[in-house]
């Protein structure tokens, strides 16, 4: 309950600090539209020559783009800026105030401030998802029971995607306790992460393996979208939940080990 109150508080304070800078809203909205629009145009061109790409239809890939945008938006809204600032805060000794607050330090370091203008990504992502579900009702409603199961699995897997994406970024940030300024890791990860806005199945085998394992971008957007349209067996579904849980536990342990190394450089 306190954590929800704190996230609400961080949102409110971020809103208070960011609302006066309206131009940022315009640039963020334009950037969201441009990013999504360019992806859509590229797809349209490809689909004038084919009906499917690695087994995915045009609408399925547009939905995937929407899911990708939604996940990227939620992360950018709540945690991205905080996690990406972590290495500098660690090196410059700016975690002192956070450490002395009577609340989980990993939570406070992840949610300190919100990028409220990332709401444009979230809204666009939700819009595309809803639109896609309605446009594809005939494909989705084999039986209403199956439809509900697929929808539930989809939302649970979106939750897993958020946790996994947060965790991988947090690993890069936390490595700052040992390696110093690890900001370059975020640039590398973001470049690979961008590959997740298309179906991972269309990449060559090595990249496919990489995107399902070491940098699990494939798990992040492709799998939830696939599950929305095709469903998933109970065993692989439970396996994904278990994998997410392990990744999350590892993230927590890495943070706890790192915080012990903190040397508070500033006086």
């Amino acid at each position: 309950m306190k954590k929800i109150a704190l996230v609400h508080l961080f949102f409110k304070t971020s809103l208070m600090t960011q609302l006066p800078y309206r131009i940022n809203f315009v640039t963020q909205a334009l950037s969201t539209l441009f990013y999504f629009g360019s992806g859509l145009i590229g797809l349209r061109i490809i689909f004038t020559h084919t009906d499917s790409l690695a087994g995915w239809t045009f609408y399925e890939i547009v939905t995937l783009l929407g899911v990708y945008q939604l996940i990227a938006g939620i992360l950018a809204f709540f945690v991205m800026e905080n996690v990406e600032n972590l290495p500098d805060k660690i090196v410059d000794g700016h975690l002192d105030e956070t450490i002395l607050m009577p609340e989980n330090t990993q939570f406070l370091s992840s949610f300190g401030s919100c990028n409220v203008w990332a709401i444009t990504d979230i809204l666009l992502g939700i819009g595309i998802m809803i639109g896609s579900i309605f446009l594809n009702l005939d494909q989705l409603t084999l039986t209403s029971f199956q439809f509900i199961v697929q929808l539930m699995q989809f939302f649970v897997l979106i939750g897993c995607s958020l946790l996994i994406s947060y965790s991988v970024r947090m690993w890069i940030g936390t490595l700052g306790f040992w390696l110093g300024r690890t900001g370059g890791g975020f640039i590398l990860f973001t470049s690979i992460w961008a590959m997740g806005k298309y179906p991972v199945d269309m990449y060559p085998p090595f990249f496919k393996w990489l995107l399902y394992t070491l940098v699990p971008v494939g798990v992040v957007a492709s799998i939830p979208t696939y599950v929305l349209f095709n469903g998933m067996g109970i065993l692989p579904f439970m396996g994904l939940l278990f994998l997410t849980f392990i990744i999350y536990l590892f993230t927590n342990s890495l943070w706890k080990m790192g915080i012990r190394k903190y040397s508070s450089a500033a006086s």
Partner: peptide, 19 residues
């Protein structure tokens, strides 16, 4: 607290953080 906030905002933050 961020410099755009007021001291009253910062005090309200403390109320939640310190229960």
């Amino acid at each position: 607290a961020p410099a755009d906030l007021t001291a009253l905002d910062a005090l309200q933050m403390q109320r939640i953080i310190y229960d």
